[in-house]
């Protein structure tokens, strides 16, 4: 793994940024005491998730890498929206059209192409297996 910067905390501390854009090195007690820190300063960014996805892919964990890449997309999606989509994906919750609409929303609003593809795939399987909401 010599060619990978993992752990990023050690080897990429100088370039890592939180979801808020704050550099990792500026997440400090002093900043907290000065009232500068918000919770977004301790959230992982899409770019870092993609870097971790690449670490996983190169180490031979392609499915984990794919999951982390989907996660990178979801960093932009608000909590309530994430939970709503999760609920729609449960069995018998959404019609085929509703799932496709969700996929389109993810693509349009959040450029979440991987997640959108994943939901379209689910919609096709749900259709075949009777896992959709009866319209």
């Amino acid at each position: 793994m010599e060619d990978l910067p993992y752990p990023l905390r050690e080897h990429a501390a100088g370039t890592l940024r939180a979801a808020s854009g704050r550099p990792l090195n500026e997440i400090t007690e002093a900043a907290l005491d000065a009232g500068e820190l918000t919770i977004a300063d301790t959230r992982i960014s899409a770019a870092t998730l993609l870097a971790q996805a690449e670490v996983a892919r190169r180490a031979g964990y392609p499915q984990l890498a794919e999951n982390l890449a989907r996660a990178a997309e979801l960093t932009a999606v608000p909590n309530t929206e994430v939970l709503r989509i999760y609920d729609r994906l449960r069995p018998g919750r959404a019609t085929h059209a509703e799932l496709l609409a969700l996929a389109e929303l993810l693509e349009r609003e959040y450029s979440a192409h991987r997640c959108a593809g994943f939901i379209r795939e689910a919609a096709a399987v749900y259709l075949q297996r009777g896992l959709l909401r009866k319209a």
Binding site: L49, R70, A71, A72, L74, V77, Y86, P91, A122, Y126
Partner: peptide, 15 residues
């Protein structure tokens, strides 16, 4: 749940 809903949830947690 379905495998897709659980996988989506996993991505949500990771995000």
């Amino acid at each position: 749940d379905t495998p897709w809903s659980k996988a989506f949830l996993a991505s949500a947690y990771a995000s």
